[in-house]
């Protein structure tokens, strides 16, 4: 009896103007077509396939590594935004703010969550790539999505790299010192790279320590406050913005290229 009443309440709600203005398709989905339409008409659901073959979601086949990567990305986004309420990207405060986050701020585990989540995401993205390779899922018509995936892997590594500097401890400073020195060897655009001396007029060299790719990356000739600020902005705004665009394309193409792990 009460079950009947609840059902009618839901139906009543589904007939209201508020419900119908939010969920197109008219009422509670009752058949396949209505269910499909409610997925297609939702901006969040439409990235996902309307229906999945049963065999496609076998854990032993997919390892769920792509889904886990996205799940960890969401955790990192939320915990990262929370950390931004306490962390100040300056030489004076960066390190002590991390200590403060770990030891004084309530639920300081948020910082550990972010750190370990970052490690986990790098691992799951690599394993996802390994799985896609082993199951041959990079073959046409999925070759474009493989390329998008390689860009996503690169962006994941760059996010990991830029986040590594932010605690501003000895490990971070020297890791980024070593890492950014690689940019010196960029062809043409690095001051010590091949072809850098070609971009010169007479004695005036345009690619120097004060104008090369490494300079643009760390905002100076030496590792310092400018590097910390640049990496902070890249880590919190620039790279997440770019990776979200590529993720949207990636998920959408999974559906368009024949669905998840289905022979095509």
């Amino acid at each position: 009896m009460s079950e009947e009443k609840q059902k009618s309440l839901l139906e009543k709600a589904a007939e209201s103007q508020i419900w119908k203005s939010i969920f197109r398709g008219g009422g509670v989905p009752r058949n396949r077509r209505q269910r499909m339409m409610s997925v297609l008409n939702s901006v969040f659901l439409h990235l996902h396939p309307v229906r999945l073959p049963k065999h496609a979601v076998k854990l032993k086949f997919t390892w769920c590594m792509g889904g886990l990567s996205f799940f960890i990305f969401l955790i990192l986004t939320i915990s990262g935004i929370l950390l931004m309420f306490y962390y100040r990207p300056t030489i004076e405060y960066a390190y002590t703010d991390i200590i403060d986050l770990a030891e004084q701020v309530p639920f300081g585990i948020m910082r550990e969550l972010h750190r370990w989540g970052a490690h986990a995401m790098v691992i799951t993205v690599w394993l996802h790539m390994f799985r896609v390779f082993m199951t041959g899922s990079y073959k046409p018509p999925r070759e474009f999505n493989w390329a998008v995936g390689v860009i996503l892997l690169l962006l994941t590594l760059l996010l990991s790299f830029t986040g590594y500097l932010l605690p501003w401890d000895q490990l971070a400073i020297w890791a980024i010192t070593v890492g950014s020195n690689m940019a010196r060897a960029t062809p043409f655009l690095g001051s010590e790279g091949p072809g850098a001396s070609l971009l010169a007029i007479g004695d005036i060299n345009f690619i120097t320590m004060g104008s090369d790719a490494r300079f643009a990356l760390i905002g100076g000739r030496f590792m310092g406050e400018a590097a910390l600020l640049r990496f902070y902005v890249l880590h919190c705004i620039g790279l997440p913005f770019i990776i979200m665009i590529f993720m949207a394309v990636h998920f959408w193409r999974v559906r368009k290229d024949g669905g998840i792990s289905t022979p095509v």
Binding site: G210, S211, F215, A216, G219, G220, R221, F222, G224, E225, A226
Partner: peptide, 10 residues
Amino acid sequence: FFFPNVLFEP
């Protein structure tokens, strides 16, 4: 914009 004119370095 990414190449500042003044550097606040030692």
